[in-house]
Amino acid sequence: MRLALYCPDIPQNAGTIIRLGACMGVPVDVIEPCGFTFSDSSLRRAGMDYLARAAIRRHDDFTAFERFRGGNGGRLIALTTAGETRPDRFAFRPDDTLILGRESAGLPDEVHALADARLRLPMVAGARSLNVAVAAAMVLHEALRQTRLLPEDPSS
């Protein structure tokens, strides 16, 4: 299981998602260009000390990401407001990559076309979208639960 951020715009969201990956034991791919530099203090503040613990792989562009992903196999699962399937009604696999779009524009058409599935979180009528980091956490938890890859609770 992997998380991929497509050209993220907001460093706080990227930092939160990287922290999510570190806490859940999931590598994070960051597809450039980002709307900020990786030395941004907002990214470091949101990621806290987890940035050092995270497995982050940066890619120069989507083509480089696809070359990397092609060598690792697995499906590309888009999290999008244009999705057709709810995450709780989708059968995740351990080698899936969950890709999240830009906060300002979502995923471009070419990424939608390459995705093996497009998932959409159900929301109440009139709600347009969730924060990208919140959506990532909700879908990642369901994917890890289904694939039995949730980290063990050290207190149990």
Rank of each mutant, 00 (worst) to 15 (best):
S156H: 15
A78M: 13
D109V: 13
L76D: 02
A137N: 00
P122L: 12
I77F: 02
L100E: 03
P11V: 11
F62Y: 14
D95F: 07
E103D: 10
G21C: 05
L98C: 03
A127F: 10
R45M: 01
I18Y: 00
I18C: 08
V30S: 00
L3K: 04
D109W: 08
E103R: 08
E152W: 10
P8V: 06
A64R: 14
T85N: 05
E152A: 15
P122G: 13
M48Y: 05
R93A: 10
G101D: 00
G126D: 04
D95P: 00
H112V: 04
P108R: 10
R86S: 04
R67T: 08
L43Q: 07
E103W: 10
Q146D: 00
G21Y: 03
F90A: 03
V28Q: 07
M24T: 15
V139N: 07
E84K: 14
E142I: 15
P122F: 11
V26R: 03
T80P: 07
D49M: 12
L20H: 03
V28W: 03
A55T: 15
R120C: 14
D95M: 04
Q12S: 13
R75E: 08
G126H: 10
A4T: 01
N72E: 14
V30M: 05
E110I: 10
T63G: 11
I18K: 01
A14N: 07
L5Y: 00
T80G: 02
P108S: 13
A4N: 05
A91P: 00
A117V: 11
A136K: 06
R145G: 06
V132R: 05
G73H: 09
R53Y: 11
L130V: 10
A14D: 03
E32W: 09
S156R: 15
F36H: 02
A52K: 13
A52Y: 12
I10A: 04
L121A: 01
L121D: 05
R89V: 07
